[in-house]
Structure formats: C-alpha cells, structure tokens
C-alpha cells in the first residue's frame, strides 16, 4: 500500500513539473497586531479582584518605619493621610469583636495604605482642560488615553485605529467577493516565490506606502477552488482545472493600505476582527480560515 502511494505521488510530481500551467494564487493575510493589552472577561476581572482582596487581607502590615524616617515631613504627611482604625479600649463593648491593633493596623482586616495627595490636578479628574493638550507644559496632569478611539465610535471599518485590543485583518472586495487579497502566480513572476508575489500584489492594489513583515516564506494554508470558483473540501482531487490559493501570513507595521483607483478588480477594503469576518465572508471560505485567525 505504502509503495503504491509513493509511486503515485512521484508520478504526480513528474507530471506537474512538465505542465506548470496549473492555476495558483497567492493570498495575503495581512494583520494589525493589538496595540493595547487584551480586554479581560467579567469572570477574570471578578476573580482577580477576589484574589487581590485575599492577598491584601493576608498581607503583612505596611512597614512605615522602613519607608519614612521618623520626624520627617514625608512621614507626617503619610501619617496624616492614613485612616487609623478605632483602638480597643477598656470598658467599651465592640459587638463585632475587639479591635486588634498592631502598628496602626487592625489585624483582623486588610490594611488600606493611602498615599498622600501630591497633585492638586487629580481632584478635578473629570474635566479636560486646555492645559492638558499643551505638551510643552511638563506640569500637565498625567492622564491615560482612552482604549476606545473615535473610529470605534464611528465604526469606521477602514481605519487601522479601531479595536485596539484585537488583531485586525485586511479584507478586500475582490471581484465581488469579500476575501483576503489574492494574486495570480504567473510563469514570469514564479521565481520570486509566493510571499513576494503576495507582498508585491498588495502594493499594486494598496500603494507602496506600507511597511509589512511577512512571517514566513511558506504558506499557512491552502484553499482549492473548482472551475466554478466553488471551494472544494475533499483533498484527493488532482484535477488540472482546480485553482489553488496559498495563504501567506504577514503583519502591517507602518503606513496604510490606500486603495488605488487604477485597479479595477478591488473595489473596497476593510480592517476587521475575527467575528466581523465571520459575518462578512462566505461560510465555506470562513471554515477554511477560521483556525488561522487570532481570538484576541
């Protein structure tokens, strides 16, 4: 059985080398990697919160004497900022158990260490002021940028600045079908290899002001189409009319995909996350690329 198989395989190779007119396409999975850390689920958030509370409850008392020299201003400011619990006293009845204070901490509970406020700005945290955008002013308040951009709010799917915690993939409307951009491998450009053909093709349809980094020379997957442009699922079909589309993975690093007017085959493009791709593309196409796309 093994031998027969090997024979047929070698036979097939022998034939294809002579007839290199089998249609091949090279397709590019261009992704934008996440810019911010991934969103955590509700369960994770609550679990981390629970663990942190447990840790704080079991934490040793904050060694104030180690961090603040006695009699300094810093020590006084720190001491004034703390909320000291009520100490135990003779003749006083505490229904919820007697306080057990050591070094200013009730050892039955977690200790809340409050840092003295240094910045007056943090009081009006909600208000955005002109001074915030004055980048020459080193005294401007420190404020984190929003993880949700204006492109998220507008739902502009052509922008690279949307869905920052997720991986975005470039999809194009090529000949009426939403798919990853794919390019024909012709006999004249065969020597450059699949990855080069795909990268060059991308620059033809999207301009050359784009910096990409292809992960590997070798393809990540193959999709087969029959003569009617339908996806074939069984693998043993060695027909000459079958088109094979090889998928190459690549990352965009800088620049942008700028749709070229001169190109007729591509009419539109979108940067989408996995779920949106599932809704947009053909079901049979998605079943072939499902495992190649990142969940985050």
């Amino acid at each position: 059985m093994m031998q027969i198989r090997q024979l047929t395989r070698s036979f097939a190779t022998a034939t294809t080398t002579t007839t290199s007119n089998i249609p091949i396409k090279s397709s590019l999975i261009l992704s934008r990697t996440p810019i911010v850390t991934q969103d955590i689920s509700e369960f994770e958030k609550l679990f981390y919160n629970y663990q942190e509370e447990l840790e704080r409850r079991l934490m040793w008392t904050f060694p104030k004497w180690f961090y603040f020299k006695k009699g300094t201003v810093a020590e006084r400011e720190f001491s004034e900022a703390q909320n000291y619990p009520i100490p135990n006293a003779r003749g006083v009845w505490f229904p919820q158990g007697n306080p057990d204070l050591k070094h200013g901490r009730d050892r039955r509970f977690k200790q809340e260490v409050i840092l003295p406020k240094k910045h007056i700005e943090s009081d009006n945290n909600n208000k955005e002021e002109d001074s915030d955008n004055d980048f020459d002013n080193v005294g401007r308040p420190i404020r984190a940028n929003s993880r949700i951009t204006k492109f998220d709010k507008e739902n502009d799917q052509t922008s690279l600045e949307r869905k920052l915690p997720r991986t975005l993939y470039l999809l194009v409307n090529q000949n009426g079908n939403w798919k990853f951009p794919s390019f024909n491998v012709l006999s004249e450009n065969e020597n450059s290899g699949l990855h080069k053909i795909a990268e060059d093709g991308l620059r033809i349809i999207g301009g050359d002001k784009i910096n990409t980094w292809s992960v590997s020379n070798s393809p990540a997957a193959v999709i087969k189409y029959d003569s009617n442009n339908k996806i074939i699922h069984n693998t043993d079909n060695n027909d000459q009319l079958i088109t094979r589309e090889f998928l190459i993975k690549s990352h965009i690093i800088a620049g942008k995909f700028d749709l070229q007017k001169s190109n007729n085959s591509v009419s539109d493009f979108k940067w989408l996350v996995k779920e949106e791709i599932k809704d947009l593309v053909d079901i049979s196409y998605y079943s072939k690329i499902d495992h190649l796309l990142s969940d985050i």
């Binding site: 509700e42 369960f43 609550l46 679990f47 919160n49 629970y50 942190e52 509370e53 447990l54 409850r57 977690k110």
Partner: peptide, 10 residues
C-alpha cells in the same frame, strides 16, 4: 472574604 459574593455566582 471581600469579593467572594461577586465571583461566586459566575
């Protein structure tokens, strides 16, 4: 323990 009541239902 604080936080247990929030995570337990999930």
């Amino acid at each position: 323990p604080i936080g247990l009541d929030k995570i337990y239902p999930l």
